[in-house]
Structures are given as structure tokens and as C-alpha cells.
Design a protein around this nucleic acid. Structure first.
Lengths: 197, 197
DNA sequence: GTGCATCAATGAACGATGTTCAATATGCTT
DNA sequence: AAGCATATTGAACATCGTTCATTGATGCAC
């Protein structure tokens, strides 16, 4: 029983993350429990705490995996040269991913660790990579001397996309318009605004 | 035992909501517990369940109160006629409120009821009122025949603001820029984009 | 092969959680 | 004064996150 070494520490972590993601995808972030995850991977609670500091740690790793999957999905297609086309493509693929895995993405949005500690660098980097994609897409609209403005606008765009997907999922405020139309409106209008600077 | 007419049902609800808000403001959404709220208002758990269906119900009412407070704060100042000035004013007051009560606003963002039931109409209306403010602000940029576009853009703007405040609070992705600069960038650029239609 | 030290895995135990509901205390009516 | 209606209670239940002494499988020394 003890010391099975059926799986390495890394394998255990991966299995637990996938089991947690399956639970979250089905019934939401709050349905993730230590005992539930342990049961689903064929181990007991104690083992989970050998691999992760606590449940929040596991959830963070789960969310990191979701962000990795999002990044992979968004970069699967080539990125066009024209800023507006590039951005629209990124945004639509982003939306497609979120729509396909709504509860998984909700888990990323909802999650707030019990201790108010800020997210570790390795986690923040996952988000930064996504912002960077947007920054690259709009790079042609800025001169090399405007690096700060380029970065700021990329962050604003990413935040706007984030908010749009967050609200388009849950609320029903924009009844007439499909999410794609909202995304396109955002990208077109914002890019037009950038060009008009 | 507390005398049964010390407080009306409405008073009890108000006290519980305020107690929950105090807990959330100090230690976050997850620090709200039935026993904790009950203790703080001088009653026991059972009484809480006479007033609210369950904890999620209480949290929803707490978030509704937060949105009411936000609406009151945002509309406390007169709204200017010029779309950009009006929108910038709304956005800045929005940001001021969120910055002053970060954990309370986080509770609005993070909250997802256990049962995946959609938010009731009376709750969604609270958000809709805020979107309406934005729609009124940009009304002059649209002809009467473009009601759909006006509504869509108001929703996009609100979502963008929402995302910006959500991310500006937690992440540290935009290190150089204060939140106000991000808000102004968003408003200016988007309004410029609308004018360039 | 044998023995043993190591340590991954266990699962009982703890305090706290959300929620229920029979029992009870209280105010109002008659 | 008696009785009714009901607001309030708090014990009880299942489940939660987390800890840690115990256990037994494993790899290594010999």
C-alpha cells in the first residue's frame, strides 16, 4: 500500500490537475474537493497534500494549465500581419476557447486564494504571455519610441476582452448580439481609435 | 433568546447584509460564513435561514447592495454633455469606488452560485442600470436609428471597464501605469474609434 | 536472498462549514 | 388566563480542508 511509486510526483500532480479540471468543467470551481480529486485519481487525501500545499495550490495549477491551453489554442493559427485582422483573429480564438470551456475559464476568473497573497510570478507570466500576443499584434500602430503606450494599450485591450468574455458568458445583458459581434465591435472600434490617435 | 420582534424581517436582512459586507471587505468573499454573520448580528444560524434561502442568497443580496452603492456613487456627480467627458467621469468614479472597496467589488466579480442557476432579473437589473448610464453618455454619437449599435457599444464599454478594474486590482501586469491612466486610455481610444465610424 | 532503513501512502481525527428541523420561547389574540 | 401562531434556537448531520502518527512497500547494503 504505502510507497507504491505507481506514479511519480509529477504524474500525480498532472493527474490531480486533470481530475480537478474535470470536476470544475462539470460543476464549477466550488465542486472541487480534496476528497473528490483524491478519489478520482485513486489515491487518498493525504497523498494530495504530499504534492500540493493545499487546495488553493492545486486550483492555481489547474488554472495555469487552463491558461496554457488557451495560449496553445490561440496561437495554433498563424497570426496575420494587419493589426486589426490579427487582433480579431486572436480575440475570436480566445472567445472560442472560453465558449467551449466556460466553467473552466470561470474558474480562472473566480479564483481568489484564501490567503490574500498575490499570484506568484510563474502564474502571472501565463497571463503576461497572452497580453504579449496582443502587443505584438498592434505593434505596427506604434513607433519604436512609444513602447509604453503600446504596452498600455495592449493591456487595456486584453482587459476589455477579458471583461467581455466574463460578462458575455454569465449575464444576458446583450440579448440581441452574439458574443462574436461584441468581440468584433470591440476590436474594430478600438483599433479605429488607435489609428485616429 | 432574542425577543422575536426586536427586528423586522427587513431589518434582519439589512443587518445580515451589512455584517456580510463587513466580513467580505476585511477578509474576502470566502470569509463569509453563516455562523460568523449570525454572531455579528446577535442571532443564531437558524434565524439567518428564516430570512435567506441559503448563504448564496445572502451573498447575492450583499452584491446587489454593493451595486446599488456603486450606482449611487457614480451618479452623485452631474454627468457632462460631451460623450467623452461624460464617459471619463463615469469611469473614474467607477474606478474610485472599486479602489475604495476592492474586496467588496471582488466579491461581485468572484461570486458564482453553487447551483448554476442564472441570476434573477432583479439582480441583472442592477448591472443593466450601470450599462444604461454609459449608453446615455454616448447617445449623441448615434442617430436614433442606431439604437442597436448604441446598446451594443455601451455593453462593450461597460465590459471593458469591468475587465480593466478586475485586472488592474489583482494582477500587476501594467506596472508603469496607474489605473486612472488605463481607464483614460480606454475611454479616449474607444470614443475616438466611435467618432471615426 | 536477507534484513533494514526510508518514505510514499494511508485514513483517522480535528475543527469548521452549510443546512435542517424539532423543540422552545415569545408576543398577540381572545 | 389561556391558547395560538411563529420567531428563534441550537443540536444534529454530512461534508469540508488540513494534519500527522502509523504502516507497509521499496530499494539498497550486504
Amino acid at each position: 500500500m504505502a510507497r507504491r511509486s505507481d506514479h511519480s510526483r509529477e504524474q500525480l500532480a498532472k493527474m490531480a490537475i486533470e481530475a480537478a479540471a474535470a470536476l470544475a468543467a462539470r460543476d464549477g470551481l466550488r465542486s472541487i474537493t480534496a476528497r473528490g480529486v483524491a478519489r478520482d485519481i485513486g489515491y487518498t487525501v493525504g497523498t494530495l497534500y504530499n504534492v500540493f500545499d493545499n487546495l488553493d495550490d492545486l486550483v492555481r495549477h489547474m488554472n495555469a494549465a487552463t491558461m496554457d491551453a488557451l495560449y496553445a489554442h490561440v496561437t495554433a493559427a498563424p497570426i496575420e500581419a494587419d493589426p486589426e485582422k490579427a487582433l480579431r483573429g486572436l480575440a475570436r480564438r480566445y472567445l472560442a476557447f472560453v465558449s467551449a470551456q466556460p466553467r473552466l475559464w470561470s474558474a480562472v476568473i473566480e479564483f481568489e486564494p484564501q490567503d490574500g497573497a498575490p499570484a506568484p510570478d510563474w502564474y502571472r507570466h501565463k497571463a503576461q504571455r497572452l497580453v504579449q500576443l496582443g502587443e505584438d499584434a498592434i505593434a505596427d500602430l506604434f513607433s519604436p519610441r512609444e513602447a509604453a503606450a503600446r504596452r498600455r494599450n495592449a493591456f487595456v485591450l486584453w482587459s476589455a476582452l477579458y471583461g467581455l468574455t466574463a460578462l458575455a458568458q454569465t449575464t444576458n445583458l446583450a440579448e440581441g448580439d452574439p458574443p462574436t459581434a461584441l468581440i468584433d465591435t470591440l476590436v474594430s472600434t478600438y483599433i479605429a481609435g488607435l489609428k485616429a490617435r
